[in-house]
Design a protein around this nucleic acid. Structure first.
Lengths: 153, 153
DNA sequence: CCAATCTTGCTAGCTACCTAGCAAATATGT
DNA sequence: ACATATTTGCTAGGTAGCTAGCAAGATTGG
């Protein structure tokens, strides 16, 4: 019956991975809602503030999202006047993203979000956290490899 | 420096949770694409096939998604002729969902998806899986509680 | 030097998640 | 009995992800 529990764990882990991801995003979204920002929009502002102007394609790679997804997020931020998008002088295909004065001002008003990570993980056993990370990384790596093979055919 | 790694783990785990969730869904989506089905549409058919006709609101609870999200998914399946939606005789607000003959036929043609779970988790240490599940459940529970408080205010 | 091939960002169209607010049906309290 | 919840599913509008296919710019190989 211990064997059964181990199988059950493997059934459950996918569902809890999803639920945990959405719970975290929901908290983040609810904090950002008064500022009319989504969670990925927040991350773009974070990058442009703390690291500086960044190529759009590099940002897509950092966030491991598709170029087409990035296009939409950048368009929203440009529409709101928080970010500027400018073709690179050398390579005209690439767009350089830069935070605007309005964007910098908004960033200054945003609350610190680190309490979310603390709320989720503080007090949990370090070894458990490390094990969870190993499981998630291994599973992700295998799934991404599987997807490549499937797409290549 | 071990302390630093422990902090770093807590920073990374959120990102990997997201990435793992999306990798799993991407594999599922790529297998279902030839059948013109999404992953949640698959789960609805699974439920209606293996358990039988189900109330729409119960299905939303099972999948822990909002009623409004369910509305859209059911509408898609009804449009494709795979699912029937019928008001309950006793409580006219509720809709009973039932698979159609077309839906049952399609279900019979679908490949078995259990290889995805195997690919992701087979061979990983049972204790690590159990630890990962503990971490995800604990974090989710805390985040959902945090959200309730935030929303209540 | 120019043809073929990448790379980048775009549009179009899809899935799947959310909140807010509505209308209809049911349940509850006095 | 009837006014007041509550529940259910809907619409409208927004975020965040995807694929497919295009056009323009950059790179590479003969």
């Amino acid at each position: 019956m211990v064997e059964e529990r181990k199988d059950a764990d493997r059934d459950l882990i996918g569902a809890w991975t999803k639920r945990c991801y959405f719970a975290g995003r929901a908290v983040m979204d609810s904090v950002l809602r008064p500022y009319d920002l989504g969670s990925v929009q927040w991350y773009v502002l974070y990058q442009l503030t703390t690291v500086g102007p960044t190529m759009q394609r590099d940002l897509a790679r950092l966030l491991t999202i598709e170029r087409a997804t990035m296009t939409g997020i950048v368009a929203t931020l440009v529409r709101k006047g928080l970010v500027e998008q400018e073709p690179d002088r050398i390579d005209q295909r690439q767009k350089l993203l830069r935070i605007t004065a309005t964007g910098a001002k908004l960033w200054g008003e945003l609350p610190d979000l680190s309490f979310i990570r603390s709320a989720a993980f503080d007090g949990i056993d370090d070894a458990d956290i490390a094990a969870a990370l190993r499981v998630l990384q291994t599973a992700t790596e295998r799934l991404e490899k599987l997807l490549q093979k499937g797409t290549a055919s």
